[in-house]
């Protein structure tokens, strides 16, 4: 029983990270119908930003996790620049296929650009301890504080984000632009600014995901975002891409599948099961678990 609960907790922790990354994919996809393949690499950008900021936080007497604040700013800036420099000009002239190829190009560019920076280089860098060590044991189940923080912080971020999209004027504008750009223009919404805001939020979330990831696997390297990003993308598709609660649910499912496969089957089979589940869900429900096509009445 305690193994089961332990596995469940690990799955939730992993799933929280996937969910945060999946949110970035889903928000950008929702608003410009583009799979932002560079999104996974924003996690890497966030990771390195924290690695280089942690010594400063120590020098200032602040806890290591405060480095995430700068990482959020840097990731948001990188995300917004990507939109302004690469995606927006392509969107005006090219097809969705050109945009997709551009996204892959941006991803490769970020990974290779990072490697070209002398302070980063090709070798992984080990991160310091982000959260305090230790934990507590309840009924034979050990909980690390890091796990508690990861799950709680992700949950809070997701609730805040959901409320933002539902209750605030800007959040509603984001939903409107993702649904119907022309009607949004007629309402007086500045579509381009709304897209920029979406990139800023989605990319900022990847910095928070980087924090959680580093707390668990304290190592950064230039391709760290590739597989993590891919799995988070799977999570977004699984839950119903373009749909915020879908990304959260998809992330948690992927996390749980991975953790249960590792515990009860074999750790080498974890990714296999993740993608197997994707295939099965897409066959049964192509729009994803929560995704639905709201028919337009004419």
């Amino acid at each position: 029983m305690s193994t089961f609960i332990q596995t469940l907790i690990v799955g939730l922790r992993l799933g929280s990270i996937y969910a945060l990354v999946a949110l970035g994919y889903t928000m950008v996809y929702g608003i410009i119908r583009l799979i932002n393949f560079a999104h996974g690499d924003f996690i890497m950008v966030g990771g390195y930003t924290m690695i280089f900021t942690i010594p400063i936080t120590f020098a200032l007497g602040l806890p290591a996790w405060t480095s995430v604040l700068l990482a959020i700013i840097v990731c948001a800036a990188v995300g917004v620049s990507t939109e302004l420099v690469a995606y927006r000009p392509i969107r005006k002239r090219g097809t969705s296929m050109t945009a997709l190829i551009t996204a892959i190009a941006v991803s490769l560019l970020l990974e290779n650009l990072a490697q070209a920076i002398p302070a980063i280089g090709p070798n992984p860098i080990v991160a310091s301890q982000i959260f305090g060590t230790g934990g507590f044991t309840v009924a034979g189940v050990t909980m690390e504080w890091t796990t508690v923080y990861t799950i709680v912080i992700s949950a809070v971020v997701m609730v805040v984000l959901y409320q933002f999209t539902q209750k605030t004027k800007l959040g509603r504008a984001m939903r409107c632009v993702s649904e119907d750009k022309e009607a949004s223009i007629l309402m007086g919404i500045n579509v381009n600014n709304t897209i920029v805001l979406t990139f800023a939020i989605g990319s900022g979330l990847s910095a928070i995901a980087a924090l959680m990831y580093l707390a668990q696997y304290p190592k950064v390297y230039t391709t760290m975002g590739a597989l993590l990003g891919l799995k988070a993308f799977v999570a977004a598709v699984l839950g119903g891409i373009g749909f915020i609660p879908g990304a959260m649910l998809g992330g948690l499912i992927i996390g749980l599948v991975e953790s249960f496969t590792t515990s009860y089957v074999s750790s080498s089979m974890a990714d296999t099961f993740v993608f197997l589940i994707l295939i099965v869900v897409l066959i049964l429900k192509p729009a994803g678990i929560l995704g639905k096509n709201v028919g337009e009445k004419v």
Partner: peptide, 14 residues
């Protein structure tokens, strides 16, 4: 100047 577009274009998910 307000515009009521062809095909309504209401925000279906709102």
């Amino acid at each position: 100047l307000a515009h009521v577009p062809e095909g309504r274009h209401v925000f279906a998910r709102l």
